[in-house]
Design a protein around this nucleic acid. Structure first.
Lengths: 146, 146
DNA sequence: TATTGTTATACTCTATAACTATA
DNA sequence: TATAGTTATAGAGTATAACAATA
């Protein structure tokens, strides 16, 4: 802890370890929730992203997700192959491809958000409601500081 | 947040996203701290692990770190090549290799722990001392629930 | 010239399967 | 038979470089 400098933090108290394993556990809890939808967590995150605002380009999405634009191509390919999104040439700039959800994509996005909430609730189960809110708020502040 | 079910959480409020990006940011902050030591964060975590208790086997380490035993072979190879650890046949069981730190490994481990503390402090800078302690405690509980 | 999307390629990380030696 | 370590190999996931179309 921040006030615990004399006791060398064991490996399991390192933030890097804790963040990694919290993520692994969340993925473990979420997988069975996502499986019936036929999509991965990563794909659902993409649906949430492109379903969020109107017509975002692949590059917009890549920037917001923190991945390379070449990675985004493959990710959108997957969703398009499943019929969950469409690529449309941007009216104002013909280089850009706006990614929009199909009706099916919208349906999966909604089901996926419910599944995500269930998985997160399972992860946060050991915490009080205040503890859970505090965790999310703290992570948000730490990440926003970028 | 747990009491905020009506507002669909944006992508950036998903725990998966927050955990991933907190990790990315920590790695970014830690890299310049680790670089002068000539080791990666992963390697320092290993030094912390094997420097923690007396004579742990590779398999022990793999289990505690949550990686496969084949992965551990490569990780220990790296540290051994740098002269930071030694493999020793376990007295009681000649199949096992106990991993122990060399004097140099111990030196790097100590410097690494200081570097880790500095990087973590940078990551947690946007939080109050209580907020920082709360974050670590919450992650610990969530991970321990496994 | 710069930017968006794309492809080909390579690199990192990790696990699975099969082997050796020990138990 | 089972376990610890090892090796070879393959699979994700991701990035870099080069190219086409468009700005």
């Amino acid at each position: 802890m921040s006030s615990d400098l004399e006791a060398p933090p064991a490996v399991t108290q390192r933030l890097g370890y804790l963040l990694k394993h919290a993520q692994l556990r969340l993925a473990e809890l979420a997988e069975p929730e996502y499986e019936p939808l036929g999509v991965t967590g990563r794909q659902l995150a993409l649906l949430a992203l492109f379903g969020d605002g109107p017509g975002q380009s692949q590059q917009d999405g890549a920037a917001r997700l923190g991945v390379d634009r070449t990675t985004m191509v493959a990710l959108v390919d997957e969703l398009e192959a499943k019929g969950l999104v469409r690529r449309e040439v941007a009216p104002g700039d013909r280089r850009k491809r706006l990614v929009t959800l199909t009706a099916e994509g919208e349906r999966v996005r909604e089901a996926g958000e419910a599944a995500t909430r269930r998985a997160e609730a399972l992860l946060l189960a050991p915490l009080s409601a205040e503890g859970a809110d505090g965790l999310r708020a703290a992570l948000l502040r730490v990440v926003r500081a970028e």
